[in-house]
Design a protein around this nucleic acid. Structure first.
Length: 269
DNA sequence: CACATTGTTCTACA
DNA sequence: TTGTAGAACAATGT
C-alpha cells in the first residue's frame, strides 16, 4: 500500500501511507508476539537485535498511534517506533509466505507475521522504554498535519518567514507532509509554492488549510497520495504534463533539494 | 556515473 | 542570536 514503483516514480511513504501501516498493525493488537526476527540489523537505530527481540517477545502490541511520519506501537511497556524513510512499509503475511529480499525485521504471531520492509534503510526502527520517552523522542516535531486546528495552523504560519513549500515540508512546523503532499496541497489551494508565507492573506491561509484537510482525507482513504488524473500527482511525472485543471504546461523547479511542481496559471507568483 | 528521495547535519548569510 | 536556504550525507536500485 502506497509504496513501490508507479511508472517511473517511486511512491515515498508520507502521512497517509503511514496511516495505512498503522491500520495494518492495529488489526493485530492483543495477539502475543511469538518471535522477533531481525534479518538486517542495519535498520535498527540505537538498539541491538538481541535487545529488541528480548524486549518484545511474548508482549502484545496495544493501540498504535501516528505522529507525522512516525508510527508508534506501545507493546506492554516498551514502545516500538517505526520510521519508513523513503522506501519502508509494514505489511501482514502468512507464516509460509516467501521472503522478500528487503524484509528487514519480522514479528511473528500465531496466525501470521508483520514485516518491516525497507529497501534503502534511510530511517528505521527505535525502541523507547515507555510512552513518555517515546513522546520525548518526537519532541522536535510540529503538530500532526491531520490533527492541527485551523487557529494553530494560522499561529504557526504567522511566525514564519520562509517560502510556502519549505515551511509545509518542515517537520518541526507541521509533521507528516512530504514533497508530493506539499505540492498537491498548494495546487488544490491555487497558491504558488514559492510564495513567502508572510505574504499570504486570510483568504489564502484559509484555502491552504482547507486544501490540506481535503487532500489528507482523500489520501488517507486511499492509503497514499492517489495518482488521480484530476490531481496534480496524477500529472506531475509527465515530462511536459499539462495542469489537470486548466491544461497549462506545469512548471517545475528544485526547492529545498526536492522537485517542486506547480501550475503557472492556476498558481501565479 | 548521475539521479531520486527521506531526515539530519553542516555552513553561509541576513 | 535566530531563522532560513542550500548543500552534503547516508542507502541502493534504475
Amino acid at each position: 500500500m502506497g509504496q513501490g514503483w508507479v511508472g517511473r516514480t517511486f511512491l515515498v511513504p508520507e502521512l497517509p501511507d503511514v496511516e495505512g501501516f498503522r491500520r495494518v498493525l492495529s488489526e493485530h493488537t492483543g495477539e502475543p508476539i511469538r518471535a522477533v526476527r531481525v534479518r538486517d540489523p542495519g535498520v535498527l537505530r540505537g538498539i541491538g537485535a538481541r535487545q529488541l527481540t528480548d524486549a518484545l517477545r511474548g508482549h502484545r502490541f496495544e493501540r498504535p498511534w501516528r505522529h507525522g511520519k512516525w508510527l508508534i506501537a506501545p507493546a506492554g511497556g516498551p514502545v516500538l517506533m517505526l520510521h519508513f524513510g523513503m522506501t519502508g512499509s509494514l505489511s501482514w503475511h502468512a507464516l509460509d509466505a516467501p521472503w522478500h529480499r528487503h524484509d528487514r525485521v519480522v514479528w511473528r504471531f500465531d496466525d501470521g507475521e508483520l514485516r518491516f520492509r525497507d529497501m534503502r534503510k534511510l530511517q528505521g526502527i527505535r525502541l523507547a522504554a515507555d510512552e513518555t520517552q517515546a513522546e520525548r523522542m518526537l519532541g522536535d516535531l510540529g503538530p500532526d498535519a491531520r490533527e492541527v486546528a485551523r487557529e494553530r495552523f494560522d499561529e504557526l504560519l504567522s511566525g514564519r518567514r520562509g517560502r510556502l513549500k519549505s515551511v509545509l515540508t518542515d517537520q518541526t512546523f507541521l509533521a507528516g507532509l512530504g514533497n508530493l503532499l506539499a505540492d498537491e496541497i498548494c495546487w488544490h489551494a491555487r497558491i504558488n509554492p514559492q510564495r513567502a508565507v508572510a505574504d499570504l492573506d486570510e483568504t489564502e491561509r484559509s484555502a491552504l488549510y482547507g486544501a490540506m484537510r481535503r487532500v489528507l482525507r482523500e489520501s488517507i482513504k486511499a492509503g497514499c497520495v492517489p495518482s488521480r488524473d484530476t490531481w496534480l500527482t496524477g500529472a506531475r511525472d509527465e515530462p511536459d504534463g499539462p495542469c489537470p485543471r486548466c491544461g497549462t504546461p506545469l512548471s517545475r523547479r528544485r526547492m529545498t533539494g526536492r522537485t517542486t511542481v506547480w501550475c503557472p496559471a492556476c498558481q501565479p507568483s
